[in-house]
Design a protein around this nucleic acid. Structure first.
Lengths: 197, 197
DNA sequence: TGACTTGTACTGACCAGTCAGTCTAAAAAC
DNA sequence: GTTTTTAGACTGACTGGTCAGTACAAGTCA
């Protein structure tokens, strides 16, 4: 099933994914050259074009791959839990994902709300799937009386997704030495805190 | 005092600011060409270089200008209020600012956490000034017993700043027809809501 | 053998930044 | 008050360089 050829090719693609992720997160899509990606992945430029039809396509598959993993993590984290615990689990899952895929998180944050790009549509769709998992949990929480009935579920889901992203990337950029557990704790305290407004 | 020359030049620079803001927000810094900016502003490419030493410098001045306005709005909004009301005022100020300067908000969200850029340092500094205004209000709120003493003030400030940005840009991109007041209300409800976790 | 990879060379489009020259408001000269 | 000069503001063709994508001959590996 997993013959040597396929494994080899998968490896190459994986290395290209990672290289592209790091570079695009650092410099942005336009400022990252295909040659740089190939160099960082340790392959020839031709190999990039053997494996992907274009720079855009590489990036789009990258997005699909990365967001797909996040959505899967979300589903696994929330599955079978009561809404309050599920929300906590989702926060933990998002932070853990961001720690594991730092570059990708930065990339998402930079490109998520950028319109007028070829892959904008794709990204919106993918994001929608991830945020939907959160929204479903919140909706169930409202229905079952755990959460305030006045809650705008869609907005709350987007907000929750967004805060985690922003806080986590902030942490990675400014306080990389702080532990994930600590950040997680502080963030949950912030979300929990009655700010009394 | 206001001779024709200076007025003309100021106008040109203003038009260049606005054109650059819109285009960079839509396409990103690298994907926006100086020629596009000039065209949109209705001047020749050379004029851009007559008014600014480089594309980077234009963008940096743009950032300084835009974030400066936001910080000023923050200071004006929070001034003289007790912490709980000041936090509300800050949220309103940020959303109002974002509505008034849509492109700039999108631009900020995209470029804020991008490292390895010439203007990265500048942007971090500017952001720090804005977030500091929020942090000071929160600190005072903790000291005066309005807010939970366990609050990580820096993180809370960053989180608050971030949620507003994310929620507002989300709104502009996905539900532009919804009114600002409505979004404001929903966001404050979300922040207030005991999610009971 | 055939799928995959390499390395090099190339093309054509595009783009940041330059520069010699034009236009015009206003200062100077008469 | 009219003419001349000056300099600030602007123009757009041009340059040097970069980069996505192509082509292909030769090499590796199952």
């Amino acid at each position: 099933m997993v013959d040597g050829r396929t494994r080899r090719r998968t490896d190459t693609r994986q290395r290209l994914y990672e290289a592209a992720m790091d570079l695009i997160a650092e410099h942005g899509f336009s400022a990252t050259t295909v040659e740089d990606i190939a160099l960082r992945a340790g392959v020839a430029k031709g190999t990039v074009y053997y494996n992907f039809p274009s720079k855009n396509a590489l990036f789009e598959e990258l997005l699909r791959h990365g967001v797909g993993l996040l959505t899967a993590d979300f589903r696994a984290a929330a599955g079978g839990l009561a809404p309050p615990e599920a929300v906590l689990a989702l926060i933990r899952a998002e932070l853990a994902y961001i720690e594991r895929h730092r570059s990708f998180a930065q990339l998402l944050l930079s490109e998520m709300w950028r319109t007028n790009r070829e892959w904008h549509q794709t990204l919106q769709l993918l994001r929608g799937e991830a945020v939907d998992v959160i929204a479903q949990v919140l909706r169930r929480g409202v229905d079952e009386g755990h959460f305030d009935a006045a809650l705008d579920v869609r907005m709350a889901a987007a907000a929750l997704f967004g805060v985690c992203l922003v806080v986590a990337v902030d942490w990675l950029v400014f306080e990389p030495d702080r532990s994930l557990a600590d950040v997680q704790g502080a963030l949950i305290t912030v979300i929990r805190a009655r700010v009394g407004i």
